[in-house]
Design a binder for these strands. Structure first.
Lengths: 202, 202, 202, 202
DNA sequence: CATGAATGAGGCTTCATTCAT
DNA sequence: AATGAATGAAGCCTCATTCAT
């Protein structure tokens, strides 16, 4: 069965918003890509901005759900950072369009929509903040600038959506592992259990 | 003395392109911000796209010039990375608008303009590539993914333009130092001179 | 029992055409007010214009019927004018929406529909013309401009639909009586039987 | 010299808004009538609604100015009513388009614009209210419903804009005189100086 | 009886740009 | 150096209507 029209609109929007930007994407471009008349678009969306905000919120909600699941029951802060980075990088590598939209187009939203998106983003980043804080409290991480480091690492990982290609030499697993290592290094955590002899290691 | 009109156009464009994006900035917005009529803008620019490309190229040329100067005569790869990161971060912190334009709006340029900008960007990044390659060759850096690491670090540093505020707690020097340390860690170079006994350290 | 859908469409159209005008009322507005989908509207009407014309014609036909009834057997021109004015005013006061539509939206009809509505309006106004002519012929009215006076009085009475509120101080009977008096005065007929002793009067 | 573009826009708007209504007039219709592209219209107006509101306000301001002038120094309430009616009728006869717009399209304005127009209309109608009140106080008029009568007379006079033709049999002076007489009759003022012997007549 | 899907045409407004002055 | 006037194209969105289900 052919893809439903509503799905086609969403796909087209994701692709175009990601490649040309929100303001660079016209309603006619969307219609053409979705194989609908521009009038018909409006059966499947509110305004163009609503469509954008929906894409962003869905993407962030999925990310939060996946992060919550992957962290479930994991105590060690290093492992939590590893899992967060791995998920984050994997998501940005496999869904570069959605994530680029979230990362680049927040500022075009009107205040209300922006608030709702930022709330989700903050909810997600709190998982990072908490893992880092725990690691510092446990002496597993060493950095004098946890906040700056967190945001630096996030930006680094976000960048994946801008350059990673599945046709490159790096597999998704290798990519995730490498970034996890970069993150741990940045946080001052020796990957080989540098806290042995302290509280018993992991 | 009042700022010359041409300067006002440039300043307005930098601010608006950075905050609203190229497609989100209208010629009327530019005119209003430059305190000119929209017709008068065209005494100081070619097309809107020309204005964008000029901003990008100037920014990149300045960066290349500054990088070349700061690297002049410096042999040690660690020091070169430190200086590159410091300059890069400082530039992104003090000129966040110009750098964000370079980082975000390349895709709106027409092929020709895009080529000229990308050529400059590549020229600049070669300085990073070379420093890292030298460090690896000298055994000063340890990473299995130099290319990925380079781009990851660049993205991390680019991010500074998106969040750094001079009104925050971090001074420009502290910011640069912290990022330099993150970079060295990411490249596997112990900050305290891990190659002591080799070539004498820094 | 719930109001039938067809009735709801008619009521919605009357209300919306009267308050927003024909061109100011969208098919979606009608659908929403009638609690139907816009497609379903078309089970109960022809085009939007047909709906408008039907409302107008029904309103005028009702008015003609009522006027004919109330004039039945009445000979005295003053009494006929009184009854016409009273009915006209009462109709405009109790059905301000329908009458405003008739008075304001004739010009949006296409030529054919317009003709049919104007024919009914003319048929109705002939009752006024005739009463006034008879009054003049009998010396009961005195005016040098019967045609102008007729139309002036009609406009005056039409206005009732624009301002009368049942929540005001004036009852419907008082309203009718006052306008009847205004009409008789305008026609030069003393309300208290000024022609007694002439041709017998009433 | 050809009519300036701005003037042409105004004229076109007056004609079209009056004959087709605001919602029945498209921006393209305006452009065609003004011999401009639809984009060029926007050099001479704000929004379409601004154009409408400007027309209304100008019309009402002119009317207020003229009414104030014509009443200047006139004490007798009958004479004031005569002058108000004459001016009102003459204005509606000679500028039927502007006045019809004022009378018919107020409801399409957004709340703010509507307020400003209604304020002017009220300012004008106060002149009527005052004249009638003075006449009642002086015993020159006799009516139990001054407010209703005022609005009835106004509606009657407004109607002139809907039907009067300069090509008809009635001159402007005759028209004004006839309506003035209708108004005085409606207010219960004998035209021949019914208050002789009271305060010395007019 | 009712509607979701669909659309060509058009709604109002702004776009970037040019040119005569 | 500066701008008012002008515009074709395009911006986002809604219009009234049809039709298969």
């Amino acid at each position: 069965m052919a893809l439903a029209s509503g799905q086609r609109v969403r796909r087209a929007a994701v692709k175009l918003f990601a490649t040309r930007g929100f303001h660079g994407t016209g309603i006619r471009d969307l219609a053409r890509a979705a194989k609908l008349s521009s009038a018909s678009l409006y059966h499947y969306m509110g305004t163009k901005e609503d469509l954008l905000a929906d894409i962003m919120r869905d993407c962030l909600r999925d990310l939060i759900t996946a992060a919550t699941e992957t962290l479930d029951g994991v105590q060690d802060p290093r492992e939590r950072v590893i899992r967060l980075v791995t998920l984050h990088v994997r998501t940005h590598a496999t869904q570069p369009e959605e994530t680029r939209i979230v990362d680049n187009e927040i500022h075009v939203l009107s205040p209300n929509a922006q608030r709702s998106v930022i709330a989700l983003r903050d909810e997600y980043e709190r998982l990072w903040t908490q893992a880092i804080a725990d690691g510092l409290a446990q002496g597993v991480f060493r950095t004098t600038q946890p906040a700056v480091t967190r945001i630096a690492l996030l930006e680094m990982c976000n960048g994946v959506a801008r350059w990673y290609s599945p046709r490159g030499q790096l597999s998704l697993d290798e990519l995730g592992a490498h970034f996890a290592e970069l993150a741990l290094r940045g946080l001052g955590a020796c990957p080989h259990g540098c806290t042995e002899g302290r509280s018993g290691g992991e």
